[in-house]
Design a protein around this nucleic acid. Structure first.
Lengths: 367, 367
DNA sequence: TTGAAAGCGCTAACAC
DNA sequence: GTGTTAGCGCTTTCAA
């Protein structure tokens, strides 16, 4: 340290190793290791000495060496709906693929399990298969609440750590949850809807093509939307809520058309990622592109209408990032013992025609 | 592979090691290593054999083992303006601190060099100090173009890799550039400005408290803003551009006040992060909060006015993330030999009152 | 209960 | 030119 004054960085000392601690404490490195991981079998005396030196210095283990030392290979199961059924989940799968790519070389094996987006029994089958496989960790989008709950409780009793994304389940304590605050999401939509608009007229909230299971969550968005309007004291503004189970169904389409014919209608907020392009198509046909249309996610169809100007705003839920992060956190936990944050609420990204390509360009970070 | 059928993951094979390649090619692992890093001293014959097997299999080196094997400690110099002079650069420093924290345990030493935001000679002094220290890599915000250029060319001739962030310098080929597309940034501002507004009136573009050096870049924003208006064919909209060198100066303030008294004024776009809170304060005083005010960055002052509703939109340049990413990419390059993308244009994040806290909550990812 | 030692996959120095 | 080998810091096994 004294002889290298020409080196601007000389003040940085090398990290302390287990060996150093052992030396300072007057024990062997094996004993230090046992203390660090309290694997027992350490005498009072040795324990005291090691803890003492540990207190005096700031030991940060070399995670890389640790990783190399433990030859254990981890197996992670990822459960999401079948990507071929839904563009949103197709994006999620992209995140999985990226994570697989990142971790492949380190004996972290990631296996994907798809279940049918519309059939709970398919989900149940998959969860059974996962439990059979006894993975070291699980990453899951628990969109079927009632079926997911017992499964996750089972995981807990098996001591299999899991991270949850997309849909929160409050009853279980996951290693971490990754998602967005849906209430705030609704508020953001309302804010964008009202910006520069007149203080009268009708706004519509549409829940399209979603299972009733999910609608619990969609109600959060709706609440946020309504609450914002209420707070702004926009008493001249009426909010119509429509629940469209099946946009292919003629009767349902008729309800939508009726809504769109409303002369006082100012804007439409679609709470589901797959619903908004359907409305956009209708608006184009009806030549009502003056309406302010707000929806979710950078799905190919949605992007098309955003670029065309029919959709004004998309709030990005970033399924790719959510999924990637979920796996990343679990793998880091297993592999490097890094505890993730319990709750990771991703930012509510506002996408417009003009900032769209800045988002399309920027990939999920690789590490 | 055959005996473990009960294991759902059995099909995943273990990663190939150098030793395996050596065996397959019928040479020693030393030779394989020499080929992989083309350190020469390999016979035609051996080279051929190794390359052949390398072609047949998909070898991904274990970066963790490599890291542990190379005992080299890297030294990275980071150059930014003095954080105490400017909140924007204070955020940048937060990114540095996070990176230091991440890399400390792996013998990647990061040293920060601050220079005076307003004095080029201070920058020159700092660059000399950096060159003296001969770091293994440099991360720099080259806000003084004419001074930075020769410095970076010097770095190139010394073969010191560097990443650039915040301000692009096209003449040199950095390892990577991290920043935003400023032209698009201006377009986004214009889009947000026009949304739901009437098609007549005046819009103001204000460059506040920036050196002429930076104004080259601010002009990009201005161009984007103007171009958007032009494309929209908003012929009734007039754009006033003001260049305010010093918002403390009475004369300059007067020019601003004159502008704000303009009855036709609809909105103000401030291209600099530190200028917008000054305008916001004025608007509050003049009780002209109906004006749409758009600025940059989540600085404490700006956040205050965004929450109050005086600022409608902030476009986030995310100095923290830019800086963190710059260091991250350089360190990964030195340490793990991961080539970053040459250009990393970060997304143009639109911040409103309602999505603000979702952004404040989400930290720069740690890895 | 403890220390010694092998080994994780790779790098780099060193003989031959 | 080539193969061998000693680490990197940690975990884990095995004697003692």
């Amino acid at each position: 340290m004294s002889g290298k004054l020409s080196n601007k960085f000389y003040m940085e000392k090398k990290n302390i190793r287990i060996k150093d601690i052992a030396q300072l404490a007057g024990v062997s490195s094996g004993t230090v290791d046992r203390v660090l991981h309290n694997r027992g079998k350490v005498s009072e005396e040795a324990l005291r000495k090691v803890l003492q030196t540990l207190k005096e210095i700031d030991y940060k283990p070399n995670l890389i060496a640790r990783t190399l030392g433990t030859k254990k290979t981890f197996r992670i199961a990822v459960l999401i709906p079948d990507p071929s059924q839904d563009e949103y989940w197709a994006q999620s799968e992209v995140g999985i693929k990226q994570a697989i790519n990142d971790w492949h070389q380190y004996d972290v094996q990631i296996k994907t399990y798809f279940f049918d987006l519309y059939h709970k029994d398919s989900f149940l089958r998959v969860t059974h298969a996962v439990l059979q496989a006894r993975p070291d960790g699980i990453v899951i989008a628990p969109i079927f609440y009632h079926e997911a709950l017992p499964f996750l409780q089972q995981c807990q009793s098996y001591k299999i750590p899991f991270t949850i994304f997309n849909t929160d389940i409050r009853e279980v304590r996951p290693l971490s949850f990754i998602g967005q605050n849906l209430y705030e999401s609704g508020r953001v939509a309302a804010e964008l809807m009202c910006l520069g608009h007149q203080k009268t007229g009708t706004l519509a909230v549409l829940h399209i093509n979603e299972d009733s299971v999910n609608s619990i969550h969609l109600l959060d968005k709706q609440r946020g939307f309504q609450q914002y309007i209420k707070e702004k004291d926009l008493t001249g503004v009426k909010i119509k809520v429509l629940n469209i189970k099946d946009s292919e169904n003629g009767k349902e389409v008729k309800r939508i058309l009726e809504l769109l014919e409303d002369e006082t209608l100012q804007g439409v907020y679609v709470t589901t990622s797959k619903g908004v392009s359907f409305i956009a198509a209708l608006l184009q046909k009806l030549n009502r592109v003056d309406l302010r249309l707000i929806g979710y996610d950078l799905l190919p169809e949605n992007i098309k209408y955003l670029e065309a100007g029919t959709i004004r705003f998309l709030i990005n839920q970033n399924a790719k990032h959510q999924t990637f992060l979920g796996i990343q956190q679990l793998a880091n936990y297993l592999f490097l013992r890094k505890e993730p944050l319990a709750h990771n609420f991703l930012p509510l990204e506002i996408i417009t025609r003009e900032n769209l390509c800045s988002y399309l360009r920027s990939a999920v970070p690789h590490f």
